[in-house]
Amino acid sequence: MAYVRSAPGTYLWLAILFVTTVALHHMTPRFEEDFLRQRSTNIDELSSDPVRVLITSAMWIDGHWLPYAVLYTVFHAPAERWLGTARWLAVCVAAHVLATLASEGALLLAIRGGAAPRSAAGTLDIGVSYALAGVVAVLAYRIAVPWRQVYLAVVALVYGVPLALSVTFTDFGHAIAVLVGLACRPLTRGRGKPWNPKETLTTLRG
């Protein structure tokens, strides 16, 4: 319980995702699709009510809730405890908003250039993965060198390989979110000494 209280924003957000996921399971497939599309950060919805959809799109997930419980505990909770709720939230918002605008902006250019159909402007686009990618990236500054480079190499593989193989607008958004997270380094200053895995292992062995 103390672990949950130390990261209130993370677990409040996770609780909201749990409730909204349960709600989705009680909707018919057709109603669910229309319902989520109205809360999507696609071009059509961003053009009409950007603030509303940027907020509501982060309250719904298209899939199972349990994996997010694991990911939030592994990444969001440590980041919130380390940075504090306000700074952690700033990273989440920056990554979610900027990656969304960048990916949808790229899609808009593709539509105007004829590389994507006009119907793509109304595609379903919800979820929390951009915020997660930003937090995963900013956590690199929590780790001491040279372990930080190892962590960053793994992050680059996780988010870079899909982008190189498929080049979807979502993968592009994830890459932007990672860059946003890395650009949030000023928010990490004064947040204590970086964690050194070697020192931790030495302490445990002693």
Rank of each mutant, 00 (worst) to 15 (best):
Leu165Val: 13
Tyr72Asn: 06
Val154Thr: 12
Ser48Tyr: 11
Gly113Pro: 10
Ala121Lys: 06
Asn196Pro: 00
Ile55Asp: 08
Ala2Ser: 13
Thr10Ser: 14
Thr28Met: 03
Phe31Tyr: 14
Asp171Cys: 04
Phe18Asp: 11
Cys184Ala: 10
Phe75Asn: 01
Tyr141Ser: 08
Trp195Met: 14
Val19Glu: 13
Leu124Gln: 11
Ala58Phe: 11
Ala102Ile: 03
Val22Gln: 14
His174Thr: 03
Gly206Leu: 10
Ala120Thr: 07
Ala156Asp: 08
Glu104Cys: 09
Ala116Asp: 12
Arg205Asn: 14
Ala90Met: 07
Tyr11Cys: 09
Ala183Asn: 05
Leu201Cys: 09
Ile43Met: 11
Arg39Pro: 11
Pro67Ala: 01
Trp65His: 08
Phe172Arg: 01
Asn196Arg: 07
Gly192Ile: 03
Val138Asp: 01
Gly113Gln: 10
Lys193Asp: 13
Val93Asp: 08
His174Ala: 07
Ile143Arg: 02
Leu24Gln: 15
Ala95Met: 00
Leu132Lys: 00
Leu124Arg: 10
Gly173Cys: 06
Ser47His: 08
Trp88Gln: 02
Ala95Lys: 00
Gly84Asn: 07
Arg189Leu: 13
Pro194Ser: 02
Ala137Met: 05
Arg30Ala: 15
Pro117Val: 06
Ala144Asn: 01
Ile43Lys: 05
Ser6Phe: 00
Pro8Tyr: 04
His174Leu: 07
Arg87Glu: 12
Arg142Asn: 02
Ala58Gln: 11
Ser48Asp: 14
Leu165Asp: 05
Val154Arg: 00
Asp62Asn: 15
Val180Phe: 00
Ser119Asn: 12
Met27Ser: 10
Gly134Trp: 01
Gly160Met: 06
Arg39Thr: 10
Val91His: 01
His174Phe: 02
Gly63Ile: 04
Ala15Arg: 06
Thr85Lys: 09
Leu54Ala: 04
Glu45Thr: 12
Ala183Cys: 05
Ser119Arg: 14
Tyr3Thr: 10
Val136Leu: 07
Leu187Ile: 01
Lys198Cys: 06
Ala144Gly: 01
Glu80Asn: 08
Leu36Gln: 09
Leu204His: 11
Gly181Pro: 00
Trp147His: 15
Thr188Trp: 00
Ala140Arg: 00
Ser119Val: 14
Thr123Trp: 12
Glu45Asn: 15
Ser129Ala: 14
Ala79Trp: 00
Leu204Pro: 06
